Computed example of a mutant assay.
Amino acid sequence: MTAVSAAGFSVATLFRMDPLGETDVPSAETGAATDIAVCALGPRRESVKSARDFARETLVRWGAAKLTGDLTLVVSELVTNALCHGMADAPAAPDGDADDDRGPSGHPVQLAMLRKGTRVMCAVQDPGCGLPTPQELGDGAETGRGLHIVECFSTAWGWFPLNGAATRSGKVVWAMFQIPGQ
């Protein structure tokens, strides 16, 4: 069974992420997720702040406020990448209407957060088909540091394409965090 949240993010998608299936996790952390939260984001700059606010409020509600600094920084980077790159390389909607909050492919950029035991994952879905690849940085580079920041501040990160579903295209980029002191 595939559960779909109100925002349209397939909850089953969250369970495809490798860190959730690790076999070396303590037995108390195996099984179903304890909390899932999803936020749909429009294709606007203001969505980066909305995503940070949503992440911060979710972490506080889950009793994981110690992650706020690192996780909100990573969320900023992932959502910025989704808006700058994922929306730009998305296939056009059949009716050509790209002016609404759903984005050019008919579904919005979305942020999903999942808490399972002592770990929290954030995942950003976008309609783009471009691969998230860390850039080689020169001495004076002013851009291209986003995925380096994600790698430095998270326990693990990765991505996978959303293929095989006629109505869904794009990718999910995720980052995993360990709640400090737990």
Rank of each mutant, 00 (worst) to 15 (best):
G170Y: 02
A82G: 10
T143V: 13
R102E: 13
D89T: 10
G117E: 11
A112M: 10
K171P: 02
C39P: 00
D139Q: 14
D101V: 11
V109A: 02
S154P: 06
V109H: 02
T143C: 12
G63N: 09
V109K: 06
C122S: 11
M113W: 05
M17N: 00
A28R: 06
D126M: 12
E57C: 02
F153M: 10
D126A: 09
M1L: 09
D70V: 08
R168I: 08
L137S: 07
G31E: 09
K116A: 13
T34L: 01
V172T: 10
A51G: 08
W174K: 02
M87D: 07
F177T: 06
K116P: 00
K66I: 03
L114F: 03
A175Q: 07
L162E: 15
S47L: 05
Q182A: 14
G170F: 02
P91S: 11
Q135R: 15
D53R: 10
Q182K: 11
L73Q: 13
M113H: 04
S27M: 02
C129Q: 15
W159Y: 14
R56H: 09
V4L: 12
Q125Y: 00
G8W: 06
D95V: 06
S154G: 07
T23F: 01
P134L: 07
A28N: 00
V38N: 03
L137I: 15
V11N: 05
A12Y: 05
A40H: 05
A32W: 03
P104F: 02
L14V: 06
I149A: 04
M121E: 03
A33G: 05
F153L: 15
I36Y: 00
M176C: 11
G31S: 07
P134G: 04
A156K: 12
P43V: 08
G144T: 05
N163G: 12
N163T: 15
I149Y: 04
V4P: 00
A92N: 03
M113Y: 03
T34I: 02
P127A: 14
L111V: 13
H148D: 13
V173N: 06
A3D: 14
P132S: 05
V120G: 01
D35G: 00
D53K: 12
I36S: 01
W159K: 02
T23P: 01
S10C: 09
S5T: 15
T167R: 15
V172K: 07
W62E: 07
G144K: 08
L137H: 10
Q110F: 03
V38G: 01
N163D: 15
L137Q: 10
G69K: 11
A28H: 04
L137C: 05
L114R: 07
R45F: 07
Q135N: 05
D95R: 05
S10V: 11
V79I: 08
A32Y: 04
F54N: 03
E151M: 00
A28D: 09
P91Y: 09
I36W: 00
A156T: 10
T155P: 01
G63L: 04
T118N: 11
D24H: 08
V11H: 07
